[in-house]
Write a protein that binds this DNA or RNA. Structure first.
Lengths: 135, 135
DNA sequence: TCCTTTTGTAACTATTATAGTTACAAATTA
DNA sequence: TAATTTGTAACTATAATAGTTACAAAAGGA
């Protein structure tokens, strides 16, 4: 199970996309999420590095770096999630056992296939698809 | 990211499917995984409850409860993984904010769609598909 | 019947990741 | 230059996983 980082980041981006008055601060966004401004800023920092938002000290978030139609959930996922592998594989198996010797490679091929399909699904959904739900 | 429970369980089932001498013990299986027999027995217990394997005190594992062609990875996943949701959603959002009020439902719909696709992929792969890699 | 072996499970520790928090230097705008 | 906010480091709390120890109960076999 992935962390809530993708979910919280989508929340952050939605607030930015729909905000009427710019700029907007991490404090304001945090109040919508009911969490800590520092936590929001940590994610904002990743979103900025991935060129999804623009920020400025003193002003706060100045906007999306791209149109919401051009920000996919895969972009967000890759920006904020460090642990991207869907399934994890146990290491240190007994290489003297034919199964222990091959299981890692077998599982890796198999999981890669599912991982790719999942990421393709994420890439097909944009921030605009999300924000239109809030209007 | 899911735990290694699915991976380890596939390993356990592969050893059972390919073993030449029955019955086989949690000690033997643990030596292929390079882990603790008690950990193996915990997973075995779940696999037994899900009617995927048969066991006996004194003898150990007596075999698969079904043909390996009839055991899908989804069967295994559902048997051993408690945290099945692919993505997690942050709760306790600010309901006074239009985004905070709707984000949970929006994300849930979206994630359910991806979850279903992932589980369908798992259901299309059987233990037999795995074990044929080890021959 | 009784001995032996193994499961099944409880209880515990260690480790890791996430989430949440505090604090403050550095940047930048007005 | 003063005020405000980001960006980030350092820390705590919490929860889940993995690993371990221990033992009662089951059950096969002599």
């Amino acid at each position: 199970m992935y962390s809530t980082k993708l979910s919280v980041s989508i929340h952050i981006l939605s607030v930015i996309a729909l905000m009427e008055v710019e700029p907007i601060t991490s404090d304001y966004i945090a109040s919508s999420i009911n969490t800590n401004p520092a936590l929001v800023r940590r994610l904002m920092s990743r979103l900025k590095k991935a060129k999804l938002i623009t920020t400025s000290t003193k002003l706060g978030v100045t906007g999306l770096a791209r149109k919401s139609e051009d920000i996919s959930l895969l972009d967000v996922f890759l920006a904020v999630e460090d642990q991207r592998d869907l399934f994890s594989i146990h290491g240190n198996t007994n290489l003297n056992c034919p199964i222990g010797a091959k299981i890692e490679g077998t599982l890796k091929n198999l999981y890669d296939n599912i991982q790719t399909a999942t990421e393709e699904k994420l890439s097909a959904i944009t921030l605009a698809d999300i924000t239109k739900e809030f209007i």
